[in-house]
Nucleic acid binder design. Structure first.
Ligand SMILES: [Mn+2]
Ligand SMILES: [Mn+2]
Ligand SMILES: [Zn+2]
Ligand SMILES: [Zn+2]
Lengths: 155, 155
DNA sequence: CCGGCAAATGCAACACTGTTGCATTAGTGG
DNA sequence: CCACTAATGCAACAGTGTTGCATTTGCCGG
């Protein structure tokens, strides 16, 4: 069983985590890997069901919550609530890919779909308010959840 | 004890409910009254804590959920999720009052604040998608929840 | 290569939000 | 006033997220 040098097989997720100034743990690396690979924001439940990688034990439910919180706290992940009231997480940086268009959120399945339209500019805020995020969301039923059929590609 | 005619002391909420074609019950009237009087969308928890009116018993938790669902189903109330993932309900005509401007949602306290800016127009949707609602939301910390001070009036 | 310490984990128990089943009650139309 | 259906109350449950605490582990200095 050959063992390559540690630095060589270090993943980008590990480097990001180390650079963020928090401990590099298996849980954090696996979760950030999953977030970076995801094509859309993932819920806690979806991540809990992740395939347990190479022989790794499944991650504990509470630890997963804490791992996600820590990634959000150090700026590596973003947390948002979907139309059903469930939190979804995405890798920070992944949102730059979705910055130039707006999104459709299905109120039935919680799915997020990219639309071909530009987002409007942010408004001015009253004194004391701290802007964090601007979301122009279009809600309704996606093609798959409508009484009709055939759904386009997801976000 | 004088008893005025039923039609005379009939509330507007009762009329709205009757006109919607569902049974007029004490629960529905009380809840719709509360929603119509509210200055911002109310959560289930907030409504459960409502003062029990004139000698009326407190409304059952499950019944409150079902009353809210029925009001939404017959178009008298609107349901939306707040930044903390909790559903909030508003009376259906109340949103016309907020149709000509956009809103700021505090990610800390869940509060909704009116801004002086017009909402952008709705985009075109792919085939099979059913538009239900367009939301242009600005998120962040309100003046009260910011490290600083003094908060403006609420939605 | 070792300790040692703080941070992270695993587990149990809990809180909050929302749902389902079912027997009972109450609104409505005749 | 009756009967029929919709709505209610209660109990039990499911899903999501949190807290406390004992144990383990990443990381750093020696
Ligand atoms: Mn997108
Ligand atoms: Mn408003
Ligand atoms: Zn859908
Ligand atoms: Zn606030």
């Amino acid at each position: 069983m050959v063992r390559a040098s540690a630095t060589a097989e270090e993943s980008l997720s590990s480097e990001l985590i180390r650079a963020a100034g928090v401990k590099v743990t298996r849980g954090r690396v696996r979760v950030l890997d999953a977030l970076r690979a995801a094509r859309q924001p993932l819920s806690h439940a979806e991540m809990e069901a992740l395939p347990a990688g190479a022989g790794d034990a499944a991650i504990d439910r509470v630890t997963l919550y804490r791992v996600l919180d820590s990634l959000v706290a150090c700026g590596l992940a973003l947390k948002a609530v979907d139309t059903r009231g469930v939190f979804r997480f995405s890798a920070a940086g992944a949102q730059r890919r979705h910055a130039d268009h707006i999104h459709f959120r299905c109120t039935d399945c919680g799915g997020v779909f990219c639309l071909k339209a530009e987002p409007p500019p942010p408004p001015k805020l009253p004194r004391g308010f701290r802007l964090n995020e601007v979301a122009y969301d279009v809600r309704g039923l996606c093609a798959g959840c409508s009484p009709h059929a055939a759904s386009p590609a997801r976000a």
